[in-house]
Amino acid sequence: MGTRLVLRLAGERASLGQADAVDVARLMLGANAVMNRTASIIAGRQPGLRGPLPKGIAEAVRLQLHGISDGSLVLEFELPDSLDETHALDLDDTPLGEATALTALAVLEGSETGYSDTAAAWNQLASELDIGGRNESLTFIMPSHARPPAVLDRDARTRLAGTARSRERSDAAGERIGILCEADFERNSARLRSADGASVVVRFDDDQAASVKDTLRKKTRLQGHITYNERTSEVVAVDLIEILRADQLVLGLPVSDFWTTKTVHEFAEEQGVSPVSTIDELRDDTISEHEAKAFMDALGL
């Protein structure tokens, strides 16, 4: 039998027959997001990276619903049994699913601070369930372990929000260039895709929503407070201050030049160079014939 997890939602209407169906759905999806983000970090995936998880990781943390019961609203999940060796990870013999659940619990109780993505996922779930408002608390229990339950309440929500925001947020304004897309005007967020294909979250307020809408799918430059991943120093989010015109690019480059993609032949012609006609033109005179032959043999030439 796999690792068993229990989530207990408490509140005035958090019981069977009274709970909003959408809260049940949010609880399921939110628990899944917490597990996925935590497993992604444990397995060594680049922090902040979104998108489908590799199959081995996704299967290890796939939550299987085993029951919904009353007495507050209780959802019981079970993680799969240990996967075969082809999907194993070196986690001191602890299955990835179990290690993920234990880490998620530790982040929620405040004893683990190195998982800002997990804290952000817990905080997002607290926001969607309105913890401290229409719902009082969410308790996370692992019955098969001796760890005490972890409680997501108003105080924990404040702490998690601070942890999620503390990922090296810069107080000085910075700039990012790219194309705005995937805007969610209910959550006041969008994504900015740069020329190299990378993307970051853009957060904006209600007063900026109209400008964001007008700029969607257009090349632009944003000014805002930038949040970096504390482990990789990569940009993960921008809190928008102002949307600048796309042609106000650095280095004085016209916007058309910045976004133009040229072929190798076009670059060669522009720079006045031509391809080599024989491999001998690349020969380094400082190496011996033997070294040159060994190099060519290694290339299969």
Rank of each mutant, 00 (worst) to 15 (best):
M1G: 14
R4H: 10
R8W: 03
A14V: 10
L16D: 06
G17S: 06
A21W: 03
V24A: 12
A33N: 15
A33T: 13
M35S: 08
N36D: 14
R37F: 01
A39V: 07
S40I: 01
A43V: 00
G44K: 05
G44L: 05
Q46L: 10
G51V: 05
A58Q: 13
R62M: 10
G71V: 06
L73G: 05
V74P: 05
L75N: 03
L79E: 11
S82T: 14
L83C: 07
S111M: 01
T113P: 01
Y115M: 13
A121T: 05
E128M: 07
D130R: 11
G132I: 02
S137M: 02
L138D: 06
L138S: 04
R154D: 12
R154W: 04
L160T: 02
A161I: 00
G162I: 01
R165D: 15
R165E: 15
R167L: 04
R167G: 09
E168K: 13
A183R: 03
F185T: 06
S194Q: 12
D196M: 00
S199D: 13
F204M: 13
Q223C: 07
G224C: 09
G224M: 08
T227P: 04
D239Q: 14
I241C: 09
L253I: 09
T260P: 09
K262E: 08
E266Q: 14
E270G: 10
P275H: 01
K293R: 14
A294M: 11
A294S: 12
M296L: 15
L299F: 09
